[in-house]
């Protein structure tokens, strides 16, 4: 016991030792947290759409075969896109609606740049069903557009929500006209 350093010196050394260990554990904890994020982040990202899926994110559609009053569905990103060749009556009807009547106010001019062509993602904004109204015999709802049979949402001739549980208008995808009758969606 004679070899031991005096009492006070020993305790301060132990204290110093203690703070050094605290620092180490803090540093290791911080690095460990960083490492955990570094592991989890790429693992989570593996579930993102893969490169081949992203590469198919746009599709080109020839509109020449769609006559006035007719609508078609095309697949885009695994979902239907409605393309409707609207009649002048339908356009007028859509443009005459005052914005105050809409729960998600948007003018038809913004939604259908080109008037006669209305291009929509055909997925009800409520819970993802596909509204009826594209085929000739389909119910078109109270406002002459689309009607979602799942929970009774009614859309007008501009694809805007007018009645029912859906919170927003039918989504407009990004698209551009490559020429008169060729449209690129996405």
């Amino acid at each position: 016991m004679a070899d031991l350093p005096p009492q006070n010196e020993q305790s301060s050394a132990a204290e110093e030792e203690g703070t050094r260990r605290d620092f180490l554990i803090l540093a290791a904890g911080a690095m460990g947290a960083l490492g955990a994020v570094g592991v989890v982040w790429p693992l989570v990202q593996t579930m993102n759409p893969s490169a081949d899926v992203l590469a198919l994110a746009s599709t080109e559609v020839d509109l020449s075969g769609i006559s006035e009053g007719q609508a078609i569905s095309v697949m885009w990103r695994g979902k239907p896109v409605f393309i409707r060749h609207r009649t002048p009556g339908e356009i007028d009807e859509a443009r005459a609606v005052p914005l105050d009547d809409l729960s998600d106010p948007e003018t038809d001019e913004v939604r259908a740049k080109d008037g006669k062509w209305l291009i929509l993602v055909g997925v009800c904004t409520h819970l993802g069903c596909i509204p009826l109204g594209n085929k000739f015999g389909d119910p078109k709802g109270d406002y002459g557009g689309w009607f979602c049979p799942c929970h009774g949402s009614h859309y007008d001739t501009s694809g805007r929500i007018r009645k029912g549980p859906a919170p927003t208008n039918l989504e407009i995808p990004e698209y551009e006209f490559l020429d008169e009758t060729l449209v690129k969606i996405g």
Partner: peptide, 13 residues
Amino acid sequence: EHIMRDVEWGWLL
């Protein structure tokens, strides 16, 4: 091969 080429971090996985 799809995992190796197209899936994000798929090659690592």
